[in-house]
Design a protein around this nucleic acid. Structure first.
Length: 268
DNA sequence: TCTGACCTGCGA
DNA sequence: TCGCAGGTCAGA
């Protein structure tokens, strides 16, 4: 759900709303979201501070308050809204952050899989691989990562320890446009296939960011709108529909306990 | 390396 | 009423 393009869209939309605004109050109604402090400490540390920047690493958003850093992971259904009235599920708004100009942002998470941390220094998120948009990964390094393991290629980009930010939707999509079967193993790809996957990973993510992310169920942009990228998907959730390339029906299978969509004819 | 639990809305 | 959706992590 919120994968790299959705989280990056949220970051870009949220930043002008909060940058250099002073936080006057923070309310956390679901304490289980907080991983390393309780709601009162979270409120006490952030109140009075200003958000100077929002960074993103993989699917994590990092609110930079100078000498305090709030890290949000949106889980599967987390969204930020700039107006409570835009919420389809107001009972699931778990965090309010209010500012000195009387504006506010709201964190909603229906399934409560989101997580929040508070740090006093810029956080190094443990076990997080390379973010292909925020950082530069060379094709040689990408090939090296692929060769270093022998896992199923569908599961490789979803493993945040290798590539940070990709989830189930974009893993299926990039394998389709790179024409690689989801059943192939990482260390058995030809150099041409590695090059195609490297190219398509960047192209798919960049294009999804330009389309404000994919709204399939829960994801909404900060102003409550849907993303556009679901209109450009080639295989995800298109089981039985004709492949845009060859007309064969799109196949759905389960890999790593996750739905996987592909074209048997186009993906070898 | 793989599987299931967490969680809740939604559609069949 | 029940199964599915999926990001992450603990446990097998």
């Amino acid at each position: 759900m919120p994968e790299l393009p959705e989280v990056e869209t949220v970051r870009q939309q949220l930043l002008p709303l909060v940058k250099d605004r002073r936080i006057t109050d923070v309310t956390v109604r679901a304490a289980k979201l907080l991983q390393n402090c309780d709601p009162e400490i979270f409120r006490g540390i952030l109140s009075g501070r200003s958000i100077t920047n929002i960074d993103r690493r993989g699917k994590y958003l990092i609110f930079d308050c100078g000498d305090a850093f709030a890290i949000f992971h949106l889980g599967m259904s987390g969204i930020f809204l700039n107006d409570r009235s835009r919420s389809r599920h107001p009972q699931h708004i778990h965090v309010d952050i209010e500012f000195d100009d009387h504006s506010a942002i709201y964190f909603q998470d229906v399934r409560k899989f989101g997580k929040i941390w508070l740090h006093d220094a810029y956080p190094q998120i443990p076990g997080l691989g390379i973010d292909p948009i925020a950082e530069t990964i060379s094709q040689a390094k990408f090939a090296e990562l692929l060769a270093s393991t022998s896992k199923n290629i569908k599961l490789f980009p979803m493993d945040q320890g290798y590539i940070a930010g990709i989830g189930n939707i974009y893993a299926s999509e990039m394998l389709f446009t790179a024409r690689i079967s989801p059943y192939r193993k990482t260390d058995q790809l030809s150099p041409a296939e590695v090059a195609a996957l490297y190219r398509e990973m960047h192209a798919i993510l960049q294009s999804a960011i330009e389309n404000y992310g994919t709204t399939y169920s829960a994801y909404q942009t900060v102003d409550g709108a849907s993303g556009d990228n679901q209109n450009f998907l080639k295989v995800y959730q298109l089981e039985g529909q004709p492949c845009s390339n060859c007309g064969s029906p799109i196949i759905k299978t389960i890999l790593g306990s996750r739905s996987t969509f592909y074209c048997e004819e186009c993906q070898a």
